[in-house]
Simulated scan of single mutants.
Amino acid sequence: MALALLVPGGRGQLGHDMVAVGPADGLVRAPSSAELDVTDDTAVADAVADFAALARGSGLRPVVVNAAAHTAVDAAETEEDRAFAINARGPASLARWCAEHDVPLLHVSTDYVFPGDGTRPYEPSDETGPRSAYGRTKLVGEQRVLATWERSWVVRTAWVYGQHGSNFVKTVARLAGSRDTLSVVDDQVGSPTWSLDLARGLVSLASLVVDGGPARRVLHATNDGETTWCGFARAVFEELGLDPARVLPAKTDDFPRPARRPAYSVLSGKAWEEVGLPPLRHWREALSAAVAARAVP
């Protein structure tokens, strides 16, 4: 039986790509935050009820994929209440009403739930310890989702870029056209992740959960491999046919920001593969494909 997907946060870069890769013989609804405010419990209740009825009435198997989030990391430091409403109370509301209608929930989370001082890729079972308001609110969201509904899964990802919305790749491409050189931090390590690849992975997971699994309820999904922001920027330059030597390494302390950034935020994909899901390709291959497809910049 084909899938039906409800994707709150559907106008973000991941939401757009969920629509692009959604099941051709199914249904994808991707409301914007204006169309479905996850902080409005009544709106969430109505949306999940209507979606479940529509899907089952059409012979489809419903799954909710929550892509709604307050992702303005620095702004969250001064508006933590707002971030908490979207990143914690909103997901809990979704989980509550998904449980009411027996609809599986996939909740997208972040590497920021970890302290960022690791030396090896983080496993889903590793101890968390967020160092920012954004990370704290996302961690509470994970905890509330998992505690509310047994058919919910948390998928952590990192360093996401895509065709829609603002992101690092677009910023680098824009600045490359106006500056002779760029200084980019070289002491933060992570895994750049193309939102289209992440969306494909989430659809694969959705197909798995409608049949009852996997048993592991927290998973990590990023493109494979790791680099620094400087290495990422240099790769963007290469893809655009520009000289990567124009990108100069810098230190995090050279660019003080309100929110503390993780020095190391690589997420292990081991558990993702162990439950039978296809691994996401290497980040460098994904970047080449994204640029070739004119998905970015």
Rank of each mutant, 00 (worst) to 15 (best):
M1Y: 08
L6G: 09
H16G: 12
L36E: 00
V38G: 05
V38N: 07
D40H: 04
A43Y: 02
A43N: 06
F51W: 11
A52V: 15
A53T: 15
V65Y: 13
A67D: 03
A67P: 06
A67M: 10
E79C: 11
E79Q: 15
I86F: 08
W97Y: 15
L105G: 01
L106T: 03
T110D: 04
D111S: 10
S125Q: 09
S125H: 11
T128C: 14
P130F: 02
G135C: 03
E150I: 09
S152H: 01
W153D: 08
V154A: 02
R156Y: 04
G162M: 11
Q163F: 12
N167W: 03
L175A: 08
S183Y: 10
T193H: 08
T193C: 10
L196Q: 10
A206H: 06
V209I: 07
R216W: 01
T228N: 08
F232P: 03
R234Y: 14
E239L: 12
E239Y: 06
E239V: 10
A245G: 14
A250F: 04
D253K: 07
D254H: 04
F255K: 02
F255H: 03
P258S: 12
R261A: 06
Y264A: 00
A271H: 12
E274L: 15
V275M: 01
H282G: 12
E285N: 11
E285T: 15
S288L: 12
A290T: 11
A292L: 14
P297D: 08
